[in-house]
Design a protein around this nucleic acid. Sequence first.
DNA 1: GTGGTCTAGACCACC
DNA 2: GTGGTCTAGACCACG
Lengths: 142, 142, 142, 142
Amino acid sequence: MIFSLNFKSGLPVYLQVVDQVKAAAASGALKPGEALPFIRPLAEELRVNRNTIAKAYTELESQGVIETIPGKGCFLAANHSPLKKDARRKLLIRDIDQAVVQAHHLQVPPDEFLDLVRDRLEVLAERQRHHDQPREPQSTPA
Amino acid sequence: MIFSLNFKSGLPVYLQVVDQVKAAAASGALKPGEALPFIRPLAEELRVNRNTIAKAYTELESQGVIETIPGKGCFLAANHSPLKKDARRKLLIRDIDQAVVQAHHLQVPPDEFLDLVRDRLEVLAERQRHHDQPREPQSTPA
Amino acid sequence: MIFSLNFKSGLPVYLQVVDQVKAAAASGALKPGEALPFIRPLAEELRVNRNTIAKAYTELESQGVIETIPGKGCFLAANHSPLKKDARRKLLIRDIDQAVVQAHHLQVPPDEFLDLVRDRLEVLAERQRHHDQPREPQSTPA
Amino acid sequence: MIFSLNFKSGLPVYLQVVDQVKAAAASGALKPGEALPFIRPLAEELRVNRNTIAKAYTELESQGVIETIPGKGCFLAANHSPLKKDARRKLLIRDIDQAVVQAHHLQVPPDEFLDLVRDRLEVLAERQRHHDQPREPQSTPA
DNA sequence: GTGGTCTAGACCACC
DNA sequence: GTGGTCTAGACCACG
């Protein structure tokens, strides 16, 4: 798991970590049951305080993305959201609107935008297929 | 000019405004010399403090993106060449990927996701039509 | 809103605050839209660090119990859980099992236990009726 | 002796064990001189480190609740008068209220809640029957 | 050794 | 003034 932080983006560091873990999980680079980096070494590597990483992991746990077992570490959870359909829709719409508005600002017409979306869905699916082959699940958590 | 703010993204509101103006300028959607929305009505529309918009515009001015003419308004600065299509694609892909990853995490299948995207395109286009009527940007000042 | 902390119970302080806010919300002592105590004064009153209260409020927000508007304060959310039925069941079962096992340890027979449960449900309902009359919702948030 | 641990309550596991032993002793469910479960099998059953159980027992001994006879096991100390019914009710009510409040917060209506309670009573009674067979507590040692 | 809690105090974004 | 982020460093619970 590789992280890259941008300290000038204005986006809080802990949220950058959250986003990158979620992206890794979505792409299949991180598989259910797999261990995340330990908090202390990761904080050191990213030159960030231990609490900042801890906060990111706490947020991920509260979103149901990871499970943390005190004394053992943090592990990617089996992927299913505990949220109601409505709540999930609402969350997704926020992100979609962000992209749609950006498209509008960049004067990318709707058709082209939809093509681009289909493209990215395909890219993600391809990455998942790629990650599905090589590895086996290792350290089981619960 | 249409804006969409995400109050829970962690990104400061004023930076979201800055980014969206810059994106519009980059694509040519906002042309050199064209007027930006007035601070007060925009703040009202976005349900945000006037200081927040003012801060965004100040930031844009200090970056040389816009020029402020006291008593008249803010206008896009002259030296803005619209980005090439590829550069715009790249910017857009970042936002799309964010939404795609979120969809995966929320267990929303691609078909449903695409439906939702079409939905939001429609909703925001509709919203844009509404906003285009009452306030018409007046052209070239400086 | 009155809090009472037990520093020797072993239960983290921030969780004690979370529990007490939830209890106040359930009893109707705290109504949707009503403001919670500000973080800083509350921390001072409870002789606890500001971050500890902030953590409690963050947890409450992530559970959907409150909404926080930066710069304005924290407000009790309209009461509806965004979780799927299954997830809610699972959470509830944890608490019920705690009580059931306690009953077993205290040698309270099932029938008596059920009576007691009905009793407490009634007490809570009564409290809600009591709180429903006197006040009116005041400071609206969103 | 049956235990039920809640790993997410925030209360340390060893204190949960302590509380549950004390509750059993308070009600007379565990009688003076009666043996507690051996550390090793109990740790296995609860999927907890042996040190955690050992710490709980150490704590209980230092509180004078149990006596440890090296090589033989741990036994409830003599001076334990079962609590009166009212005192037990009061202890139980704390746990019941916690569950009742949680039910309210999760929007689980009273009827459904009571069904769930009956359910758990049944499940835990069943579990208890299972556990009562393999290991039979041997009586009075010291 | 792991993660969790708490403190003390700094700075930032927003009203 | 509000809440949010981050740091530095201490102590605890658990494996």
